[in-house]
């Protein structure tokens, strides 16, 4: 019984996902936001980097990268904490 409910729920969610994918904007035609055009235009004069993605990751959005490094550090600490308690 609960299997059939789960199957129905899964089919509903999957149907929504597929419908959303089909009904989305056409592929290859994203909305031209000012932010992306700014990054592509000014990553060379402002950051002097050829790679706009690196310019965003390390300069315009450095805070995100700092948080990401913190998450990585926290995860490794958690793995060490969990696994070391088993054997020691």
């Amino acid at each position: 019984m609960s299997r059939w409910v789960a199957l129905a729920a899964f089919l509903l969610v999957a149907g929504f996902l597929l419908f959303g994918a089909v009904a989305l904007r056409p592929f290859g035609d994203p909305p031209r936001t000012e932010m992306d055009q700014y990054f592509n235009r000014y990553s060379q004069p402002e950051v002097a980097a050829n790679n706009a993605v690196t310019a965003i990751v390390f300069d315009y959005r450095g805070y995100d990268t700092l948080g990401e490094a913190t998450v990585l550090f926290t995860a490794v600490t958690g793995v060490a904490l969990i696994l070391r308690r088993l054997r020691a």
Partner: peptide
């Protein structure tokens, strides 16, 4: 567009 790629990089590491 460069912004989705940069944030996907963050997402992959997390």
């Amino acid at each position: 567009l460069p912004t989705p790629q940069a944030l996907t990089l963050t997402s992959i590491v997390i």
